Computed example of a mutant assay.
Amino acid sequence: MPFVVPRSPELPAATWGSYGMTTLAVVPLIWRRRAPVAVLAAIVLIGGVYKVALDGPGQPLPYAGLIAFYTVALQCAPRVRVAVGLATVAAVALSVGWKTGTARELLFTLFVSAAAYALGRLQYTRQAYTEAVEARAAELERANRIEAEQAAARERARIAREMHDILSHAVSIMIVQAEAGPVAVRRAPERAEAAFEAIAETGRDAMAQLRAMLGVLRTAEASPRSPQPGVAELRELLERVRASGPRVSYERTGSVRELPAALEATVHRVVQEALTNVVKHAGASAVDVRLEYGAESLTVTVTDDGRGPGGSSSGGHGLIGIRERAAAHGGTAQTGPGPDGRGYAVRVVLVTSPQEVGT
């Protein structure tokens, strides 16, 4: 301002040295975030030199020092802040005592310095809160992404099990019927016609289920799934297996009741896969399917009189799928030799109580 508005004659003239020193007191602020304490010390030192050596019209306002003190409050550790605060109070007291020595100026300077410190701590709190919110949002996003990936993996596994069960069962029945067809044509033409009709019916059923599943996969928007086969559809499944050769018995014991749709679908798929292994590997003449309804569980047992573990244990992914389905309902699956070591048995225990299923 002295270069724009003339100063009073009794005041010292404006000099470039005075303004150079004033500017020098501001330059350290460039490094205030890297070394806040050193910058504050440099600004205080430059201000002291100015007062002692020049005391010209440069008017070194205290803003640079307040900004440096604010930065110390914002970035430094508690011990450093306490030490710098005590040193600042001492420096303010000496400066005021040397300059005017009035209580008014001392209180005003201390109040302004305390306000700068309080603003620094307030900004620290705001930054910490913002960082916490951002970290929480990032963590939530990661959790959602992981959950979505896990859900997609579970859905892929479910679809793989469904397609395996559908195709494996249908193809096994069709192969058995097709192999028996030529023999039946020569010996019993009426049985050959039934065999070919069973092949066609099995193929049509498999195609219908695959179309329904592929339709869900193609649909971009979420849509209700078509009902999955349940316990009621077991009789139709058993009839198709009977048509392929073995005698099939079916019994339900205990407190027979309606079960949740997902659990009934699991029962159907477990029986389907067990019968598929019987048709493909066991060479059995008789199969027994039993459902035992307990108070909080349902036990599914499929027993055959075939070649035993050596023949039917090669179920591949089928037995793995049975164990996965049982585990999904809090149950267990056991496979091994049948009664008296003859044939093969698949025993699956599924939890049916609402409390257990919910967990």
Rank of each mutant, 00 (worst) to 15 (best):
L319C: 07
A128T: 01
E149N: 01
A83C: 03
Y293P: 00
F69Y: 15
L40C: 11
V27R: 11
V133S: 13
P2G: 13
G318K: 08
G245K: 15
Y250G: 10
L291P: 00
E197A: 15
D288G: 11
L40A: 09
G56R: 13
S353Q: 15
T71L: 08
D340I: 06
E10Q: 07
V37S: 09
E273G: 04
P78L: 06
E239P: 00
S314C: 09
A180V: 00
V27A: 10
R247L: 09
A282N: 05
R121K: 12
V302E: 01
L74D: 09
A222E: 02
D205W: 04
G20A: 11
L259Q: 04
R136I: 00
V278T: 08
E356R: 14
S297Q: 09
Q177D: 12
F196C: 06
P78G: 00
G230W: 02
A282Y: 03
A68D: 08
F111S: 14
S313Y: 04
V171N: 14
R32G: 05
S353N: 14
G65C: 07
Q272L: 03
L217A: 11
T335Y: 02
I159R: 15
E162A: 11
T109M: 05
V171L: 15
M213I: 00
T23M: 02
G331T: 03
E233Y: 12
P339K: 05
I159L: 13
Q334G: 03
G338P: 01
A274E: 00
A53Q: 10
I67C: 07
E131F: 05
V270K: 03
L210Q: 14
E147G: 13
T352G: 09
G254N: 02
V39A: 10
T88M: 12
A152H: 15
E296V: 11
L45P: 00
A138W: 05
L217C: 07
P229A: 08
A222R: 11
R235W: 05
G311Y: 04
R145S: 08
D304T: 08
D55S: 13
G311C: 10
V171P: 09
E273Q: 10
A64K: 13
I166G: 01
A262R: 14
E258D: 11
E221V: 07
E239S: 10
I322A: 01
A232M: 04
A274K: 06
L263Y: 02
W31T: 01
L40S: 00
G338C: 07
G311N: 08
V4T: 12
I146T: 14
L217F: 01
E131C: 06
E149L: 03
P36Y: 12
L140V: 00
I46C: 01
P60N: 05
V248N: 12
T359K: 15
A87I: 00
T22V: 06
R307D: 01
A73H: 10
N144Y: 08
A194R: 14
P246R: 13
E201F: 04
V96T: 12
Q228S: 13
V248A: 11
S249V: 03
A138I: 01
L319R: 08
A68N: 02
G20Y: 06
A90N: 14
Q228H: 12
